[in-house]
């Protein structure tokens, strides 16, 4: 059964290996050059000179422009899309192709029970899915490591509000892609078992996985662990934007909190209560942004921020991976039960 599974999977395996090899080559060349830039910028020795913030932010500024940013975007998009593609092209056709061509009748009449047939198929190709996602994620994570270190070092001077914890990057690095790949694969097989026709099953897989990927970072991930609330002095925080609007309305947003993930922020008083009106006659029209900010600080305005601290990054990675692996196991068990107990034709 192993042999047949591998033989049927060979074209897909070769295609996946080719994509991974190209990605690896490109990321290796660019990653070495990025690591070189990190070193030549002088960041590794910055603690001795106490200029980590400025060197790191300068490095980030440079890494954000030009080909690095472009490549990072493309590579992250590949890691983000890989589970969906795996679910569609490996998961959905796994059973439906056998149904559509009737070959399950051939396979099920060899001396191999259908428990083993579906078990080996699910197990081997599920493992291959996870391995492919792990390799892709590992490469991108390695490539982006200097940027992640610089984000931590730059602190509030960081020129970017994006870090490895913000949703798009979180899903494209670390170990969560493994969980997504297992889930998407099992989802594809389940769609195939239920819909029984390949192309509609692929469409269902894509739609369902996209819906999960849309809902998860917006409504579920923020609540996996209760977020931290902090009220900070304006000088101690990296602001993403501030200003006054009509009717003295006040607007203030925190841009970044180290390498943490900002969920929401607003202007507040010392007790953390929302301030929605500009106090003490401060105005951007009179003295410019710097004076306005100083005026707000004098009048006791602070920034309240709800966030997940950067130190929780790996906890979140493990939680989320575990959740998706459990979901994948549930779906795979359903497929196993359904295929081995019920007739396919």
């Amino acid at each position: 059964m192993m042999w047949l599974t591998w033989r049927q999977f060979r074209p897909q395996a070769i295609a996946a290996a080719a994509v991974l090899a190209v990605l690896a080559a490109v990321l290796l060349v660019s990653g070495l050059s990025l690591a070189h830039l990190y070193t030549t910028t002088g960041i590794p020795a910055c603690h001795a000179h106490h200029d980590c913030e400025s060197l790191a932010s300068g490095f980030l500024m440079h890494a954000r422009s030009g080909s690095y940013d472009r490549l990072h975007g493309i590579a992250a998009a590949i890691v983000l899309l890989a589970p969906a593609v795996i679910g569609m092209f490996w998961g959905a056709p796994l059973i439906t192709r056998e149904i559509e061509t009737g070959t399950f009748r051939l396979a099920w009449n060899q001396s191999v029970s259908r428990y083993r047939w579906i078990g080996v198929k699910l197990g081997l190709i599920g493992l291959a899915s996870m391995a492919a996602a792990a390799v892709a994620s590992l490469m991108v994570t390695w490539w982006a490591a200097p940027i992640n270190r610089a984000v931590v070092l730059a602190g509030s001077a960081s020129p970017t509000t994006v870090n490895r914890f913000t949703p798009a990057a979180f899903a494209a690095s670390g170990i969560v892609p493994v969980g997504y790949a297992a889930f998407a694969f099992a989802l594809g097989v389940t769609a195939g078992v239920l819909v029984r026709r390949t192309v509609p099953a692929m469409a269902v897989t894509l739609a369902a996985f996209a819906a999960v990927q849309l809902a998860w970072p917006n409504w579920i991930r923020p609540h996996l662990i209760a977020p931290v609330h902090a009220v900070l002095a304006l000088g101690k925080v990296s602001l993403g934007g501030f200003g006054d609007g009509p009717g003295n309305s006040l607007f203030l947003a925190v841009g970044s909190k180290g390498d943490g993930w900002i969920l929401s922020s607003h202007a507040a008083n010392a007790a953390g209560q929302v301030i929605s009106r500009v106090p003490g006659g401060c105005s951007t029209q009179t003295g410019g942004p710097g004076a306005f900010l100083a005026c707000l600080a004098r009048n006791g305005v602070r920034a309240a921020v709800t966030y997940q601290p950067g130190s929780r990054y790996w906890t979140f990675q493990w939680y989320e991976t575990a959740i998706f692996l459990v979901l994948a196991a549930v779906l795979a068990t359903f497929c196993y039960w359904r295929v081995s107990r019920r007739a396919l034709a």
Binding site: R7, P11, T101, T103, F104, R105, L106, N109, S111, V112
Partner: peptide, 20 residues
């Protein structure tokens, strides 16, 4: 699998793996 080994079957449309 023992039972399967004792019975050979050729289905109606003689399915085979087209890519093999």
């Amino acid at each position: 699998s023992e039972q399967l080994a004792r019975v050979g079957f050729v289905a109606q449309d003689t399915p085979t793996y087209g890519g093999l």
